[in-house]
Design a protein around this nucleic acid. Sequence first.
DNA 1: CGCGGATTTGACATAGTTCAATTCGAGTGG
DNA 2: CCACTCGAATTGAACTATGTCAAATCCGCG
Lengths: 232, 232
Amino acid sequence: MFDTATQASPCHSCARRKTCLGGALVENMNERAPTVTRCVIDKGNHLFRSGDTADTLYVVRSGATKTYVVSAEGEEEIRGFQLANDVAGLDAVCSDAHRGNAKAIGRTWVCRLPAAAVRARMGESSSFRERVLSSLGREFERLHTMLHRERCSADQRVASFLLAQLPVNSSGATEAQDALELPMSRTDLARYLDLATETVSRVFTRLQTRNIVRSQGARCEIVDRAALRALI
Amino acid sequence: MFDTATQASPCHSCARRKTCLGGALVENMNERAPTVTRCVIDKGNHLFRSGDTADTLYVVRSGATKTYVVSAEGEEEIRGFQLANDVAGLDAVCSDAHRGNAKAIGRTWVCRLPAAAVRARMGESSSFRERVLSSLGREFERLHTMLHRERCSADQRVASFLLAQLPVNSSGATEAQDALELPMSRTDLARYLDLATETVSRVFTRLQTRNIVRSQGARCEIVDRAALRALI
DNA sequence: CGCGGATTTGACATAGTTCAATTCGAGTGG
DNA sequence: CCACTCGAATTGAACTATGTCAAATCCGCG
């Protein structure tokens, strides 16, 4: 009783359709819904490369991706990580070609949304238009946060990053201990924060010594959230 | 024969209506065109402040503005300069409240566009929608450029900034000498590039010594564009 | 002409990089 | 189950670009 020929998109029967951009895209469009497809990207494979026609948006279902550009010196400058429910290549809504590369950090399931359908739907549904604009707004906010972060000390950059990984909690006062699974390598984290890997490493040991975090490989436990906030 | 009661907006009779966002907004909307107003902002006065309801976009006609946030230490972190034809507060399209402050650097003429009208028009006219999306795309591009710039040396940051100020010339090969009028103070430039004022000053003298630029106060002449590009 | 802020120059301090060496840890094969 | 391997992560030591502080100079404006 699901996904017949009359329902091209897996979004209609997806558990996340209420919160996902794909769900918003196909809402009230049963018959003429655009074709959303799911696929798996193996570790290290690209979703898109710089210069590719920006015809597709990728919503991460599970796993993680990174977007990056390659600098003149051949170094990867990481511009963002996309975890579950994040969108890779959101700039496809705003331009014809992708301005960077997107690569799977581990084995990653994504949903592919046609950018043209997203743009067209913005003209039809004001609620969908607001939805996309607010996603763009959050992306602006993220870039501004990055800009601010790169004007801080190494400790502050890592602290700010860790806090940004924490699930949002507006009341904030809880200070509960919290475990994080960081999907990216220290090297990638360093390339994201614009620090040397060695520096990131030193910051983590420093934070561990001061009993602010307990870090072991990908697993990172925030012991003292308040102290982390106080660093910034 | 201009600006009667039936033409609320000065855009209809504006010489720049073909290229300005305001012109695009009122196009084919003679009777029910949204109310665009012009006004002058004196040096140092704010267009909007962080937290203000994002109900207005400002197109700069003449003069210049800066957008900035105030850091925890009370320092101005400058996020962008808006010169003629640039938009200050473009994020008003994407969110309810402004995420930063905007202030006139000198006496500045601006046109105020109602953000609600811009959002609404995006639903009515696909060409206007594409126009706004491409403006948002250029803003993304600018932020990515800033992000890259802040990962460079002081010399490279200044070089990259100066090249970005140069009028775009896709053929690029001309290497013609070019004069720039920088509307912002060295201090503001330093706050934009995330450098100490002293460092910016030293970079300018260094570039002058190497006969790459001739700088005198606000006036800055690019003598050797190729050398500037080679720095990056 | 003289004032006050902006800019430039100089001397020194330091956070973070770089290079080099060591340790860790996830796979792999015996 | 343990030894082995290779890349990733950590630690250490020395270097450097840029910041900071202080002083001198410039410049626009009354």
